[in-house]
Write a protein that binds this DNA or RNA. Sequence first.
DNA 1: GACTTAGGTATCAAGTTGCAACTGAAAACT
DNA 2: AGTTTTCAGTTGCAACTTGATACCTAAGTC
Lengths: 180, 180
Amino acid sequence: MGTDVREPLMELSACGLPAALEVMGERWSFMILRASFNGVHHFEEFLSELGIARNILSNRLSRLVEHGILDRVQDEQDRRRVEYALTEKGFDLLPAMVSLRHWGLKYGTEGVGMDPVIVDDRDRMPIGPVAMLAHDGRILGPADLNMVARKDLPEEGRDRPEGTPPGGGVAIDEPREAAE
Amino acid sequence: MGTDVREPLMELSACGLPAALEVMGERWSFMILRASFNGVHHFEEFLSELGIARNILSNRLSRLVEHGILDRVQDEQDRRRVEYALTEKGFDLLPAMVSLRHWGLKYGTEGVGMDPVIVDDRDRMPIGPVAMLAHDGRILGPADLNMVARKDLPEEGRDRPEGTPPGGGVAIDEPREAAE
DNA sequence: GACTTAGGTATCAAGTTGCAACTGAAAACT
DNA sequence: AGTTTTCAGTTGCAACTTGATACCTAAGTC
């Protein structure tokens, strides 16, 4: 299991998690992301779907726009309307969201069947799990992981940052598209 | 109004996300999970690693224990000490946490190198991305997904809940272990 | 011009967070 | 034995955040 690396505190902070939580750690952020992914685009829709207070929704939407997760676009036909649309950065949060969703389903008390269901657009079958992959694409379970100080990495791993996809590309959390 | 899937609100709520957020949506939960995975086990350690207030830490640890994410065990050698250890349920949150971490790294402003690095225990190479998989194991990108009402699923997909691993097992977010 | 809709502010009560000081019990030192 | 230190909390209180409700403003509709 996790061996004690734990260097003074700076090490622990050299991690993307705090940055991610700064935006998504707030109470409604993930719910808004989900609704957004689910086809909700307008203020009053979020309001009635989520049952959130107006001021909080307003605040959260601004924050998400500010952080580049949503785009705020004025409708040219009806200029009262504002559309909130997920950016690429927003879509990139999907693995995290889906993983949380599956975890909640696995351990939650609610009914076993989710609805709506996320499907693979190619064959419209429900998607499988969200998985951590090794550098070569093998699926890793929690027990297969370890944390090591960067300096203790083997030679070949030194220039391969965590999150590099099997293909050898550069992007993190941006697996090559299965459908193109 | 709503032309998309979006049925009245019940549908949107039939989702594990709210359940997951009830525990992990609070400000420090993921940071505690990370520290825990990183080998931090004791109250005073969390305190100094995270820079969290004592009362909040106390409160969060209780909550995580209550929800079965951490186990609270008295040290028999030194009975002042209490050890907090991740449960299986806690380990199952790793894909979500790692995914957030990678997202934060990709878009964050902080330095590009993470430390410590999560490695595959088998070859000690940094892990790859966290990916959403199709029912047959293909890697899916955000653009490959769609949400459909459960009743609109094709026949074969009806009894295959979202999150079912390629192998055909039952567990969600519990990929078959790569290292036995 | 009156009315409705969309997307927000303003106000204020209730809850949450965080600092600092205190407690209490178990170990360690003298 | 008596004092001090360490560990894991609890308590009290100020600052901040959240949430319900009411109000506001601009744009569309009749």
